[in-house]
Amino acid sequence: MTDVTNKAAAETVLEVRDLHTCFDIEGESAWAVSGVSFDVHADEFLGIVGESGSGKSVTALSIMRLIPDPPGKIARGEIHFGGRDLLSLDYREMHKVRGREIAMIFQEPMTSLNPVFTIGMQVAETLRHHEEISAAEARARAVEVLTQVGIPDAAKRLDDYPHQFSGGMRQRVMIAMALICRPRILIADEPTTALDVTIQAQILDLMKELLASRRGSSVILITHDLAVVAETCQRVIVMYGGKTQEIADIEDLFDDPRHPYTRGLLDSIPTEQNKGKPLHAIPGNVPGILSFPAGCKYCTRCPEVIERCKIDGPPLVEVAPGHHVRCHLVEDQGAEGSP
């Protein structure tokens, strides 16, 4: 197992080790996540980026143990949190972790709230479920968090239904609901993808503010947008084909991307300098989940592919403190460079 530690020995709140999750698709095992290891530090904004189908959501849902079974199954791995392995908890213990210690919000603000219950009921429900608290007190706390996330006139809007809120407002409600028990980790799965740019900026700023004001909590932000990551995260995990391809501090990743896939992603973003000129697109398409190649998952599209890539999958190696890369080229460099 690769040792995944950060250079500034920060406190680690969550450790994911060698996670494997597969789905049964018409009798075949589709490995949506195959060997993902990373740490989440205290007080950090950790980004997970990657294209559609790279296994970001499945990783998040595995941490929450929310993989639909069947057809899904967490086949292997460990997830250490608060001195326990989440994967070996029984259901009752897991219920206490969800919502109270690790909370999650989702991409679709329009459908993620229950349409037939009021906002107040849904926000207070989390609290009432996890804490011994009276209905009136729970309502008061709900007003408090809703105000914190920027719902104007929160007390009056408690009895409104989700359809009376806009998309951006609903995402704020989701955040309020997730934060009301003061969880240590908030997993946000594409929280702004469905929103307008100006609303996205509001929501991301809100999340940054809330994180800064609450010591000891961390956010895992899942997105496919490298610009969003650049703007909000301190550390990034780049995923492709169900594997972590590169883990680095945000500056290191943008200054010195070591994985060909990361470079490909960064190069395909239009910039001011290359206006109107051809972009450096990555050739080909993301393969379907059952047709990823053996060896390096990226070898069918990689411009720097060598023979070895098609045979064995490269390990994740630490090329600089806290900078991990899964690529044969880097592995060679690392081997040459090390004494």
Binding site: R92, H95, G99, M104, F106, L113, H129, M174, M177
Partner: peptide, 20 residues
């Protein structure tokens, strides 16, 4: 999606199904 949200809040299966 809202059922997934309810599970993510830590509600037990019974409440998710019978209420939400």
């Amino acid at each position: 999606d809202y059922v997934r949200t309810a599970f993510a809040k830590g509600l037990p299966e019974r409440r998710v199904i019978m209420l939400h």
